[in-house]
């Protein structure tokens, strides 16, 4: 009997998150079964009751670290994974729950739970890279399905994945969407936001709200001035940068500058 060629093993893990990014994998449709034939899914608790102990060739990690237990768990997963890929805004930037970093977590806890003393969590919601080395980050809230397939395909082929580093503006131009701030005066975070979604919102007449997080070196100063010119209040400018990737250095600085104006 012919032995099956060794397939790379894949594990999928969840930390504080909404499940949406790992769901993206199940949303791959036909590509899911194709991938499943070329990869060995060794651990994926949300989709399989069979969990192998590893080690794993690739771990996809969703969610941010918000408890002591999870901080220990990610170190354990790192130790059992050859490659670790952080997927989504929570895993790469803390996610919406990182808003607690800018507030008082004890007060948050008291707001939600009648007996806050029973609920344990860290004062912060931090990205995976704050705890262990990460080999690759896939951004977005949620991640883009096409980018996920590209990453998995690249890993299978042993090449570097082709992920854009430019801003959403380039994707708007590529798909021929008229520039919303220019033609309609609509506030848009596209110039400072990392591409990858396919510039979806502007194509629907909605300004980008930055769910893929900042490009590496955004010109937020110019954008803050434009938002101000478009009539946004300092509080609103501060707020738009304090959403899904609020604790990234770039958006944190932009929020502070915007709120000062």
């Amino acid at each position: 009997m012919a032995t099956e060629p060794a397939r790379p093993s894949l594990a999928v893990w969840k930390f504080a998150s909404c499940d949406g990014c790992q769901l993206t994998l199940l949303d791959c449709g036909d590509a899911l079964l194709t991938l499943a034939a070329r990869l060995h899914i060794a651990a994926f608790p949300e989709a399989s009751s069979m969990i192998e102990p590893g080690p794993y060739d690739v771990s996809l990690v969703e969610g941010s670290i918000t408890t002591e237990e999870d901080a220990a768990r990610i170190r354990d997963i790192r130790a059992r994974s050859t490659l670790l890929v952080a997927i989504g805004a929570c895993a790469t930037a803390g996610g919406i729950q990182a808003l607690r970093d800018l507030a008082d977590v004890d007060e948050f806890r008291a707001q939600v739970y009648p007996h806050p003393e029973y609920v344990r969590s860290l004062a912060t919601a931090t990205p995976i890279s704050a705890h262990v080395p990460v080999d690759l980050e896939l951004h977005g809230c949620p991640i883009d399905r096409g980018q996920l397939v590209e990453v998995l395909g690249a890993l299978l082929a042993g090449r570097k994945p082709d992920l854009p580093v430019h801003s959403v503006c380039a994707q708007c131009k590529a798909r021929g969407t008229p520039c919303l701030p220019v033609v309609a005066g609509v506030p848009c975070l596209g110039p400072v936001t990392r591409a990858g979604c396919g510039a979806l919102c502007p194509a629907y007449g909605r300004g980008c709200f930055g769910c893929f997080g900042p490009v590496e070196r955004p010109n937020t100063r110019a954008l803050v001035a434009l938002l101000r010119h478009q009539g946004m209040s300092p509080a609103d400018i501060g707020r738009v940068f304090r959403t899904y990737t609020a604790t990234t250095a770039q958006f944190r600085a932009a929020a502070e500058e915007g709120a000062r104006s």
Binding site: F15, A16, T66, T67, D70, I96, Q97, L99, R100, A103, V105, E107, F108, R109, Q111, V112, Y113, V119, S121, A125
Partner: peptide, 9 residues
């Protein structure tokens, strides 16, 4: 599952 404090944020 860790808490995410939506109602507070």
């Amino acid at each position: 599952e860790p808490p995410r404090y939506f109602e507070a944020l």
